[in-house]
Amino acid sequence: TFELKGKVGKVVKIAEDHYLVESEGDKWIAYSDEKLSLGDRVMVVDVDGLKLKVKRIP
């Protein structure tokens, strides 16, 4: 299986209740415990079905 946990991506869209993150050339629906901005670099900390939980990284 394709393992996304630990992968790095970038926030490419902000929606009302989720983010769109591009990682490894694909776009994924993501959510975070912190507020993210367009262009933020993020790391995948968990995968919930087809949704990614991400956190901001420097």
Rank of each mutant, 00 (worst) to 15 (best):
13 K>I: 08
55 K>I: 15
36 L>M: 07
43 M>H: 06
28 W>S: 02
33 D>R: 06
37 S>D: 10
26 D>V: 11
58 P>Y: 09
13 K>M: 13
55 K>F: 10
16 E>D: 12
37 S>T: 10
24 E>F: 03
38 L>C: 09
10 K>Y: 07
43 M>S: 06
3 E>H: 02
3 E>I: 01
40 D>K: 01
55 K>N: 14
2 F>T: 15
53 K>W: 12
31 Y>Q: 13
58 P>D: 14
52 L>K: 01
12 V>C: 13
50 L>R: 08
35 K>P: 09
23 S>C: 15
23 S>T: 14
34 E>T: 05
5 K>W: 15
39 G>E: 12
33 D>F: 09
36 L>F: 05
38 L>K: 07
35 K>C: 12
33 D>Y: 06
27 K>M: 08
45 V>S: 05
34 E>L: 05
24 E>R: 02
38 L>H: 09
23 S>R: 03
45 V>R: 02
14 I>G: 03
47 V>P: 04
4 L>M: 14
5 K>T: 14
43 M>G: 03
45 V>P: 01
45 V>D: 12
55 K>G: 07
56 R>W: 14
3 E>R: 01
8 V>I: 14
56 R>T: 12
1 T>H: 15
49 G>C: 07
21 V>T: 03
50 L>S: 08
47 V>G: 03
1 T>M: 15
39 G>I: 02
33 D>N: 06
32 S>E: 00
27 K>N: 09
6 G>E: 03
50 L>F: 12
5 K>Y: 15
20 L>A: 05
11 V>C: 07
49 G>W: 05
3 E>W: 03
49 G>P: 06
45 V>N: 04
32 S>K: 07
48 D>F: 13
38 L>T: 08
28 W>P: 00
19 Y>C: 11
29 I>M: 10
2 F>V: 15
20 L>Q: 06
58 P>C: 14
58 P>V: 09
9 G>E: 01
9 G>T: 03
39 G>F: 13
42 V>M: 01
17 D>V: 10
22 E>S: 05
56 R>F: 14
7 K>G: 04
43 M>Q: 06
19 Y>N: 02
12 V>W: 06
32 S>G: 11
35 K>W: 10
38 L>P: 10
35 K>S: 13
32 S>T: 05
14 I>S: 10
32 S>C: 11
7 K>M: 05
39 G>P: 01
49 G>M: 09
52 L>F: 03
33 D>K: 07
37 S>A: 11
7 K>R: 07
32 S>M: 04
7 K>W: 02
54 V>T: 02
5 K>Q: 15
47 V>F: 07
39 G>T: 06
55 K>E: 15
30 A>M: 08
43 M>K: 03
22 E>Q: 05
13 K>S: 09
10 K>A: 11
53 K>V: 06
44 V>M: 02
41 R>P: 14
56 R>N: 07
12 V>P: 00
27 K>L: 10
9 G>R: 01
20 L>H: 14
4 L>S: 14
18 H>G: 13
46 D>M: 03
15 A>I: 12
39 G>M: 09
58 P>W: 06
56 R>P: 14
13 K>D: 13
26 D>L: 13
8 V>N: 05
55 K>T: 14
6 G>P: 00
40 D>Y: 05
30 A>P: 00
31 Y>E: 14
27 K>R: 06
44 V>G: 02
42 V>S: 01
51 K>M: 13
28 W>Y: 14
49 G>K: 09
45 V>T: 11
52 L>G: 03
10 K>L: 12
34 E>N: 05
13 K>V: 11
34 E>R: 06
21 V>C: 08
16 E>I: 12
6 G>V: 01
14 I>L: 09
24 E>S: 04
21 V>D: 00
36 L>C: 09
49 G>H: 11
42 V>W: 01
18 H>W: 11
6 G>S: 01
36 L>V: 04
16 E>R: 07
23 S>Y: 02
5 K>M: 15
36 L>N: 01
12 V>Y: 06
18 H>S: 12
32 S>R: 03
32 S>L: 02
27 K>W: 07
14 I>E: 10
3 E>C: 03
6 G>A: 01
42 V>C: 11
17 D>Q: 09
2 F>D: 15
26 D>A: 13
31 Y>P: 00
3 E>S: 01
13 K>Y: 09
45 V>W: 09
54 V>A: 02
10 K>S: 10
37 S>E: 13
42 V>I: 14
57 I>T: 12
21 V>K: 00
48 D>R: 03
14 I>Y: 08
9 G>C: 15
17 D>K: 10
21 V>S: 01
7 K>V: 03
43 M>T: 13
12 V>N: 05
44 V>K: 01
19 Y>S: 03
47 V>H: 05
29 I>C: 13
37 S>Q: 08
48 D>E: 09
6 G>C: 03
36 L>P: 02
28 W>M: 06
13 K>G: 11
58 P>K: 04
39 G>C: 08
30 A>D: 00
